[in-house]
């Protein structure tokens, strides 16, 4: 049926562990949909039949951070919400990646006000900034492909000396 049917007898191939692990990692990125506001609706639209994120192996959107390796922060992060985002990020197992989806997540966008964090990179590391207010679903797919490229380039050595981060004390309320 598949590729293996071309072999007359049981075949084998050689590759590096790194390449195999990175390839399998990048082909099934499990996103953590951190849907906060408008962008969350476009993120839902990515999962719908028209755009169909399943084509890229990421349809398993889990609302628990412990099963995910890519956090898509979709929407305006306020100061009140920031500790929650950080806590969810801390709960995700290593290795993990973050997409800051939309202008307000990346920079505060049109909300230069007292309650909006001007860019989530002030408290979580961001791997990819995605422009748009909100980005079109095709653009989110584009971001997913870009982050798959980034994941595909990782090697085991990258994570060798990674320390488990200490959990931050989360402020009350």
């Amino acid at each position: 049926m598949g590729l293996e049917s071309l072999f007359k007898e049981s075949g084998f191939f050689t590759t590096t562990i790194d390449a195999l692990v990175a390839w399998s990692r990048k082909s099934s990125v499990w996103p953590m949909p951190m849907g906060i506001s408008c962008c969350a609706i476009e993120m839902m639209a990515v999962a719908d039949p028209k755009y169909d994120i399943a084509r890229f192996g990421s349809e398993v959107m889990r609302f628990t951070p412990r099963q995910c390796d890519l956090m898509i922060v979709a929407g305006t992060v306020t100061y009140k919400m920031a500790p929650v985002v950080r806590k969810i990020y801390d709960q995700m197992p290593e290795p993990k990646w973050v997409i800051a989806m939309g202008a307000c997540t990346a920079t505060g966008g049109i909300y230069r006000t007292y309650s909006v964090v001007q860019g989530i990179d002030q408290f979580v590391p961001v791997d990819l900034y995605l422009a748009g207010c909100p980005p079109r679903p095709d653009n989110l797919l584009n971001a997913l492909i870009a982050i798959q490229d980034k994941i595909g380039r990782t090697k085991a050595a990258d994570f060798k000396n990674a320390e488990l981060p200490e959990l931050n004390e989360i402020q009350n309320n």
């Binding site: 906060i36 506001s37 408008c38 929407g75 305006t76 306020t78 009140k80 919400m81 929650v84 049109i110 909300y111 006000t113 007292y114 309650s115 909006v116």
Partner: peptide, 26 residues
């Protein structure tokens, strides 16, 4: 509530009536 409080009413006081149209989208 308040996890998505973006300060619309304060923003509206600081911009013209035209400028606020895109904010109503959100």
């Amino acid at each position: 509530l308040g996890y998505l409080h973006r300060g619309y009413e304060k923003l509206a006081e600081n911009m013209s009536y035209y400028e606020f149209i895109p904010h109503t989208d959100r």
